[in-house]
Design a protein around this nucleic acid. Structure first.
Lengths: 238, 238
DNA sequence: CCCTTAATAGTCAGTACGACTATAAAGAGA
DNA sequence: TCTCTTTATAGTCGTACTGACTATTAAGGG
């Protein structure tokens, strides 16, 4: 068969977002309430159709700005997750969704923009069941982020520009759902070149109590060597 | 703006494949020669339009069977890579491509099917420049496979059902482009639970010469603990 | 002034890793 | 047949990394 002679059906293409942040030590996700059928009244991941003149990445960043109400989303971490293309995903028509994961440092109140749809931060554990196959997309996003924490400096995307090692550790603990030993975490982070760099002479009172913590900035390393592996998930003979 | 009132443009959706294998100790990729404009006469990754009743994954597996001529592709490793959606990717129309990576153990002669298009195994290093943005897709596939060798048992997808540790090591060396110490590689593979399991009493003459090697099968572990990290790429103080 | 809290420093044994050396089992060629 | 070459496999050794701890420092609260 000739490649170019295939009949092709028109598809609608959307860009949907799993926007994650940490509020009060818990992982939260940005959800919108659907105003129309199907799944009217259900919660769903924010997203929308890709326009004729934009890529899925551009559409995702536009949606991110609209839904969060942030004026500048250019510095935020946005990453393609995967594409969902099962024929019956949307009962109305054939929709192919390119899903993205976005990570926010400080949780803004959502929906500051002009959009009439409700948008809310929802704790990850209480999210769902969501509309369409968004439960699976959200779970995939969580898996991906958890895995990338091990071998990239992605955790700093959850933190403000200057952060303490305690805040960084809380990112790992929140996403992985496990407690980590503080001295050991500190040692490993500082031993990994390019992960964080110290802000000279700066310190911050973490919560009013306790010794002030030194501040760090995100480093330049794309990958962590050695990686920061999570504690043995199962009963492995480690 | 209301989510569901967005105007949407029809897109064509294709599933393209970066099919990788190892022939004669070199990484090869399956390419087809384009018979029509645009890029007529150029080499490209195999692929085709997603049909109305199938997902991108289904389309990719169908294309894989057509292009390789293999009757049973159900056991082969096929994995979604990412989606390419820039508006000007294809001069004819708006095409969104979901790219996949497939790994083949034993390299069959391509194009055993009825397709008239030429399909050939091309050494990875001499592939390109390819049609459209396929150079980038191929490079992304290579990056992804190289990274996944570190923390998954993916390398066994390049090997036949029963293989020697020398063959497994050659997969790593070929994809990473680096030489590995044989005793150390062996020790690490055998120390990683679930990576490989011994085939009792079986051995194979590797190339006619040398001591026969014991045979192993792919294990059941999804992720490798500890991971098999590649040698320090830069001058890191490891 | 203690007590609590949180950050940071340091210790110690077990494990993993890279660089080696040594041995075993096959075929090739003299 | 006897070596030489080739490949697989076994083992050694010093360093680095890891997890589980203990100890100290610096803040605020009663």
């Amino acid at each position: 068969m000739e490649y170019d002679k295939y009949a092709h059906e028109p598809f609608a293409v959307t860009a949907d977002l799993a926007v994650l942040t940490i509020r009060d030590g818990t992982l939260h996700v940005l959800l919108v309430e659907r105003g129309q059928e199907p799944y009217k009244g259900h919660w769903a991941l924010p997203g929308g159709f890709v326009q004729p003149d934009e890529s899925a990445e551009t559409a995702a960043r536009r949606e991110l700005a609209e839904e969060t109400g942030l004026s500048d989303v250019s510095g935020l971490h946005l990453e393609q997750l995967r594409t969902y293309s099962e024929p019956d995903r949307d009962p109305r028509m054939r929709v192919v969704t390119v899903a993205f994961t976005a990570l926010l440092p400080h949780p803004p109140e959502p929906n500051g923009g002009s959009d009439a749809a409700q948008a809310r931060w929802v704790p990850y554990d209480t999210a769902g069941p969501l509309a369409f196959d968004h439960d699976r997309i959200l779970a995939d996003a969580h898996d991906r982020v958890g895995a990338k924490l091990e071998y990239t400096g992605l955790a700093t995307a959850f933190c403000p520009p200057e952060f303490t090692l305690g805040e960084l550790q809380q990112v790992y603990e929140t996403v992985w759902g496990t407690a980590l030993d503080r001295p050991n975490f500190r040692r490993k982070v500082l031993a990994t070149p390019g992960f964080v760099e110290a802000v000279p002479g700066a310190a911050r009172l973490t919560g009013g109590r306790g010794k002030p913590a030194a501040l760090y900035r995100a480093g330049t390393a794309a990958t962590l060597h050695p990686p920061l592996l999570r504690p043995t998930p199962e009963g492995r003979p480690a």
